[in-house]
Design a protein around this nucleic acid. Structure first.
Lengths: 204, 204
DNA sequence: GTCTATACATCGATAGAC
DNA sequence: GTCTATCGATGTATAGAC
């Protein structure tokens, strides 16, 4: 009985180690994928190059991901989880203008920190790929956490939420496209927040 | 003498016809390119498929364009010229809110009317391609015409212009990404314009 | 689990006949 | 100006040895 228990424990332990190694390798592959995408654009990601980057041959990648689409899917979900972390990091404020200004500034910083991630999450830059239902669900959850934050400062009308997403995404898009590496739009975050809050408050 | 004159005229006429045919074929190729991009995305454009679409073999395209990049370049410049036409079509208004609302709505409609054109002009969706200096100059001219329109209604500060481009591009981006074919953000154009004008007027 | 080898398609672009 | 033929490379994916 003792022997069987020991054996079972050992097998579980080995499986556990293997599972952890596997997950670690998957993470390593994804990080290399972000790095390559930064050079070639998110749509220019190549499996041969990706394999070379992590010291494998291309076919070995299929041990960890079913397809290239599965890699994009994992990147997409990871990107949204990172967005959640970034949004959670924003210190709450009683002042709505403060809260919105910090949120917009944080969002621009998030997008600027990793351009291919921005492309993957918020544009349709990858031909012939769309997030799987599972990956899409992660993005929906993220959106709902964002609307919860807005609700905290009394913003709940759909039009106001839509205006907020448009403003944020537009600020980020302009920053990345027309002043990459700079802060021309980022420094307008408070300006934009004042504009937005004044408008929301003026509702009938 | 008469003979020589006639011959010269005839040769000029032939050259003229050839030049016009050539330009016509170039236009036909570009239009087919927009059509294909609508199916595969702007980054998914293929020369073989494009050639098939216009009834040629792929190498024949090189008679009309030096490279695939040259095709993207021509599309980029043509797209900005179309944007100018769309903006010129906007009826001027003495009411700033009217003017801005119409401009935003028109811009969203322009982007929604041709998604690959939006991708090519306003995102970096094509890997390993950027507009040539000549094509980029066309976009700068277009931007300057836009700022001239804003100046007409008293908006001249760079921050206000930057806020306007962010708002417009964000509204269009959200419309295309999250409600393609609908009008969820387009119908917020007046709302956005009121927000923007109220803010600009509140400047110290 | 990783490798070599390879299948099979497609890509942009060029050479040279007609 | 258009064609056929082809180059060299890349793409994703699979088979089978070790």
């Amino acid at each position: 009985m003792i022997g069987r228990t020991v054996v079972a424990t050992t097998q579980a332990g080995v499986a556990d180690v293997r599972s952890r190694r596997r997950e670690q390798t998957r993470t390593e592959i994804l990080e290399a994928a972000w790095g390559l995408s930064a050079r070639r654009g998110i749509a220019g990601l190549s499996l041969r190059e990706l394999a070379r980057e992590v010291g494998m041959q291309a076919p070995s990648l299929y041990t960890y991901f079913d397809s290239k689409a599965a890699i994009y899917d994992a990147m997409f979900a990871a990107g949204y989880r990172q967005l959640d972390v970034a949004l959670a990091d924003i210190e709450p404020s009683d002042d709505p203008v403060d809260a919105i200004a910090t949120a917009i500034e944080g969002f621009i910083a998030f997008c600027a920190a990793n351009v291919p991630r921005y492309q993957l999450l918020f544009t349709r830059a990858v031909p012939d790929w769309a997030p799987s239902p599972a990956a899409y669900a992660v993005s929906v959850a993220s959106y709902e956490r964002m609307t919860a934050l807005l609700a905290d400062i009394g913003i709940e009308r759909q039009e106001d939420i839509d205006l907020m997403t448009a403003l944020s995404s537009g600020m980020a898009a302009q920053q990345l496209a027309n002043d990459p590496g700079g802060d021309r739009w980022q420094q307008l975050s408070r300006d934009a927040a004042e504009m937005y809050i004044a408008h929301v408050r003026s509702r009938p």
